[in-house]
Amino acid sequence: MSRPEDTLPPDLFYNDSESRKYTTSSRIQHIQSNMTHRALSLLSLTHPSLILDIGCGSGLSGEILSSPDPDTPGGPHIWIGMDISASMLAVALEKEVEGDLFLADAGQGVPFRPGTFDAAISISAVQWLCNAETSDESPAGRLSRFFAGLYGSLRRGGRAVCQFYPKNDEQKKMISSAAVRAGFGAGLLEDDPGTKSAKTYLVLTVGGGQLDGDITGVVSGIEGVDVIDSRRKHREKGRREVKGGKAWIMRKKEQMERKGKVVKANSKYTGRKRNIAF
């Protein structure tokens, strides 16, 4: 499958017919709705909140945000959506969604005053920030403006969950490290990793509030989320942990043991590469 973000910028790719196709495909609707519910469960909202939807498109996620509890935890929420595609917003308008809509490019920033939102959600949009069409815009600059703007517009203790489709590991790293640089506590969660339907969620927290100043506290408390901690990297310079390496295996085994699972005893062979015998 070709990646749409490799062919055209989103405002051109999602033209009228493409937008209609996207929003009327029941398969896409189903996937989008599942991902929105997953993102909402990671946000753990307990009361009606003000939510920013980045790349709101035709309002598929928004309709879920506007639904009452218990369908939507803590709902109904009030949401504000941003999208760069006028065609997508036109479909949202036709559906008379309840959120306010903005024609805006998240790569140019987030034009709301500090502490506006309780939470933010983004479904299948952030990877679009990685393509820059003109010479005066770099993907790094667009990501940095976006995450800095998002960080500023969230309340202390607020959370954001961005599901996105990374093109490769490099892009995944580029996006998550841009979020950490903006000040977020960040973690990555992958559902169905390694399969065709793999989903990547970037879980972001803003320090302060009840978090006791530990920006990674909330993220590390969420089941299955791998914390991206920029500070730890500095401390452990020189013995970087490679996924699948010995240190990584030892740590995973420790984690499993703590959970009461039976793990094999460590030996000098733990984490070693086996020679393949033919």
């Binding site: 308008l93 809509l101 903005f102 024609l103 805006a104 490019d105 034009p111």
Partner: peptide
């Protein structure tokens, strides 16, 4: 139509 254009 209620939509603000914030594209710069």
């Amino acid at each position: 139509e209620g939509i603000a254009n914030f594209l710069l």
